[in-house]
Amino acid sequence: MAVYKRTYKGYSGALTAAWSRFLILPRYSFGRLFQSKFLVLFLMACFFYPAGCAVFIYLSHNLSFLRVLNVQAANLLEINANFFYIYCTVQATMAYLLTALVGPGLVSPDLVNNALPLYFCRPFSRSEYVAGKMSVLIYLLSLITWIPGLILFLMQSSLAGRSWIFANWWIAEAIVVGSLVWIGVLSLIAMAMSAWVKWRIAAGALILGVIFVGAGFGRALNAVMRIRGGAMLDLAQDSFTIWSALFRLPGAGQDIDTLDAVNAIAAACLICLWLLFKKVRPFEVVK
């Protein structure tokens, strides 16, 4: 064919449905992420605690003789809201570390290599881009938080009987809602840091730092200014406060009110979204 005939022609093949276009991004991201052996090992390590909990639940229903012999031991083996609250706390810590590993590599490579125009010259919106990148984290973090949590809940329900599930259905709700709140906060922080700090290592350090330094600064602020509101800067504490309300454990989050915690989390999410949309654009102004 003569060169002059090779003119531009629009793509005439089948189009991916508009609603599912954002799922293309996680497909490629997972392929790249799972090349890292360390990440795979860490992901496996994230399932140790849920596996331990499953064994614990099984034993608590098979050591009935222990209950007869020792009342204290029976109390120790009780599976209640506190058990699932502790489960959520442990898995939230693992989720946080996993986010620090995975998060920095989500947006920054696209920005460093000026790849965003290649996404946005296609029928693909900024929201879809953010949703696609976020879904990588949402999927991974769900895999280690509320999904095993619900499996443990179902396991307990099947062993304890139908009456237990009717009396404690709200625990399942607390596991899902509490985990989703934490996943949302972590994902947005990771995406915002990844978009603003192009150096992956620095972005990872900032993801770690936002929680640690926020907590430390909040406590220091409380001590120096003799206030209590500094605890709102501690996003982990805010989440624990929300969880304690969801799990109906009044003593677990004493520093701040639940409403203040919800407001702090919402404010953090909005700031992250604003930062994210400020950076994720189909053009870059080079000064």
Binding site: G209, F212, V213, G216, F217, R219, A220
Partner: peptide, 10 residues
């Protein structure tokens, strides 16, 4: 607890 462990560290 803040300056040494977090600020200087990071």
């Amino acid at each position: 607890f803040f300056f040494l462990r977090l600020a200087i560290f990071f």
